[in-house]
Design a protein around this nucleic acid. Structure first.
Lengths: 159, 159
DNA sequence: TGGTATCCCATAAGAGCCCATGATTTGAAC
DNA sequence: GTTCAAATCATGGGCTCTTATGGGATACCA
């Protein structure tokens, strides 16, 4: 199972190619021929993962007893909207401009590891998003020490 | 479980390397290949911990019934913003300049042990922060003798 | 036929690895 | 308590390899 950690910012070149960070390619494994990318449902970003992970997700979802409308929404947004993009020989991909334009990616891409998946952002939008999230966390009085306390069973597991 | 105590100030060299204090590396254990670093939510500093601790935290939080927005804020700020940095052969790390610049770290780093985690500060900002904290502790009438009393069950565990 | 995808190659920067040295700490001997 | 040697730690530098970046040629497709 691929685990994506840390964040990287890489350039998009004149041919529309961008290097997938070496540690992400390592996480994907030597057999990986590419990645899967689709619009994020929550953010102005793309979500990415390994091909195998999307297939596993698909199988898992079929076993759930989801309402048909919910299943149909997932089918349309994630599976219908996903694009499989192959690596070139140097570990680069060319992302469809329909996806990158939709989320404001122009000349650089921020790869944000989210363990099982990763996100792709325009770096400026990511910075704004992170500052907003930090402000919201502070407003909710979330701190690292409280997170650790909650994880340890203190605070009745609440935050 | 790593326990980080004391504070140290080390230099950043021309190649951007800084020695992780030997006692912190000892706390991390011989198997440790690096550390994890992310922006502090509360302070103009970075938070750091062992890779294992962050993974444990992640697993623990998934088991809690946190409100989805709270979970997502934590996911974005701490997990999404964390960077795994490896040790070199001499116990040094190279911190991403995106993190060090965000908190004003330039030529020296103060490592501040916080038992399960540690903080990374620009030394001048740390000095200011500590003075502020001392003033606040005095205003709350906190003293070492009262801390010891509270820890011993006196004062009904209150401070 | 033009545009683009694919494949191949080259290069610079920096990450990673290895080694050395001076400063500081620690412990033993007196 | 002092001195000295050994061990440890922080600091510095050099070399090699990997990675990200850039470009050209060819094949394919609309």
């Amino acid at each position: 199972m691929a685990v994506f950690l840390s964040s990287f910012v890489n350039k998009i070149d004149k041919k529309g190619r961008v290097s997938v960070p070496a540690s992400f390619r390592a996480a994907l494994g030597q057999d990986a021929t590419g990645i899967v990318v689709f619009r994020s449902l929550q953010y102005e970003a793309l979500d990415g993962c390994s091909i195998a992970h999307l297939e596993l997700l698909s199988e898992s979802l079929e076993k759930l007893d989801l309402p048909p409308e919910t299943f149909e929404l997932i089918e349309t947004t994630i599976f219908g909207g996903s694009v499989q993009v192959p690596f070139d020989g140097e570990g680069r991909v060319v992302l469809p401009s329909s996806l990158t334009e939709a989320v404001g990616i122009t000349s650089e891409i921020a790869f944000v590891g989210r363990r099982k998946t990763f996100q792709l952002w325009d770096p400026a939008k990511l910075a704004t998003h992170e500052e907003t999230a930090r402000g919201q966390a502070r407003a909710k009085d979330i701190s690292l020490s409280k997170i650790i306390a909650a994880a340890s069973g203190k605070l009745d597991g609440r935050l």
